[in-house]
Design a protein around this nucleic acid. Sequence first.
DNA 1: CTGAAAGCGCTTACAG
DNA 2: CTGAAAGCGCTTACAG
Lengths: 335, 335
Amino acid sequence: MNPPTIKDVAKAANVSVATVSRVLHNLSGYSEKTKKKVLDTIEELGYQPNAIARGLVNKRTQTIGVLFPNVSSSFSSELLHGIEEVAHEQEFSIIVCNTVADGIRTMKYLQVLREKQVDGIIFTSELLRDEYYRIIEEMKIPVVLVNTYSQKYQIPYVKTDDRQAAYQATDYLIQKGHRDIAMIAGTKSDIIAGIPRVEGYKQALTDNHIDIDESKIVYGDFQLQSGRDAMETLLANETRITAVFAASDEMAIGAMGVAYEKGIKIPEELSIMGYDDLSLAQMVYPPLTTVHQPLKEMGRIATENLIKLIIGKERVSSNIVTHHIVERKSVTEKA
Amino acid sequence: MNPPTIKDVAKAANVSVATVSRVLHNLSGYSEKTKKKVLDTIEELGYQPNAIARGLVNKRTQTIGVLFPNVSSSFSSELLHGIEEVAHEQEFSIIVCNTVADGIRTMKYLQVLREKQVDGIIFTSELLRDEYYRIIEEMKIPVVLVNTYSQKYQIPYVKTDDRQAAYQATDYLIQKGHRDIAMIAGTKSDIIAGIPRVEGYKQALTDNHIDIDESKIVYGDFQLQSGRDAMETLLANETRITAVFAASDEMAIGAMGVAYEKGIKIPEELSIMGYDDLSLAQMVYPPLTTVHQPLKEMGRIATENLIKLIIGKERVSSNIVTHHIVERKSVTEKA
DNA sequence: CTGAAAGCGCTTACAG
DNA sequence: CTGAAAGCGCTTACAG
């Protein structure tokens, strides 16, 4: 026995499928009596509409595709949380795609999303390459960028001001009396979260009349291990350092780990500042002072905007969401 | 200009849609020449099949629904990573659902998944209530359980042996010379990850002729804060404790945090053992000795099994995957 | 207030 | 080797 279709209920209720469809959608054009009859037999048969069939005629699937370079990172998870929340509120489903930051795989996924006729796409934390843009453009559906943006194409995005946030983080350290501040930067070539944060750091130094010492800047890839490596390098340099600003919480925590191993007390002997404010920032000891990015909120905003675009709004603004420094225990006044 | 359909390519290639469909699926029944002609015009028009239309006739959408009580937890993320991996390998998409461990919301999601005609469901980390089972049964699609199981219904699952793992963790502590071992347990009423772990703990104690002291067992809810609270309680008890076994890494880390705050040295003065081996277990200092659950692998296995079931395999076995203890730095030999 | 019919973009017997 | 046609489960003018 197959599940009942609209035809089955039409037959059982002695009306046409058109009528059933009308009451299903609360359109006008039927008496109270037939409405009741239809509703009753829907109940009775346990009828459930088929969204696939509906999607075929409406050309709307009520689903959106979300691309992450790394689904299982805390960063992505928190974004996903916000995305899922508003999608569900607005009756959209989300298909999640893990691109592994790989071009081939991303293209493959974009193909799949196209074939599955998603209504829109959220693209996160990666540079939108030309080839990606081209295929999305062909699909004629809206996209929104999260935690990335495109210089070349005008696409709505939601992100923080990385340069400013890094500036403020560095300045915060300076206000605490630190002048020998190292930076564990993100991926060197990353024009979204790599370069701007280094620029912010440098600018803050300059504005405070502190010379920039390139040997105090070490590059990682945002992940824990690279933070460890960077810290080792910094320590090997034997230049004086009283504070470290890391471009991600993970790297900050990695740095903290090697500090511990070397018997360096945090924050008494070395202050460490992170970036992101992932939930693990509050879990480590000492809790990490860091730049808070409202990831869940960013996910929410992006999804709200995407849905507006899907619903038919012509354009939607980009959002620079506000970061702030959350003071915990890993940074202290310089003695 | 709408995107080209199979009809458009048929017309342009001067063949019937049936033929186009055949070459699309590599069926037999056309000459090399027409094959080439069709392929060329597909290329030329940039034709992409419409999976929605295909799904309608095939009654297969190549998508599976995945339910998490909390999408943004590390636990779920790692599961999701494995799930996504094999889904993608096997040409399935996944719709992720965040149930927030809420019955209403779960039912809502199940409805959505039904309407969207998913081919199967992965249900994780929560008790499968009767009402959930009933609706899934009506849908006539396979389900697999991850990190949970059902006593009442015979549904394939993949999980670890919680009782045994807790037993071994406790025994490990005992072998290290500890006899005053507290437990920070999970949710008291949780028959999957709560009760069995306490039972394993108790059994290990008993088998080693150590009396069970109920005041050494404090219940949390697997989350960080509850681990902190539990540790406070334990410390307030003033009963002697040299080691703590926590039923989750988060709780272990919470406990470590309050230990630090009280000036208790880990592991010198107190050994702490976790459960899960989330990536954060290696991030904290000292790195957490814990019970490793192969979460990503569990996600993979579950998805492989689900797809087998979808493909038509009659039945598939359940899997008790192997855990193991990973020794890091938070546990030491009792002095 | 209501129904017959076309159409969404495919697949798949069936017939030749 | 190939095509005409029915059908998947809906929605939506159109006509009455």
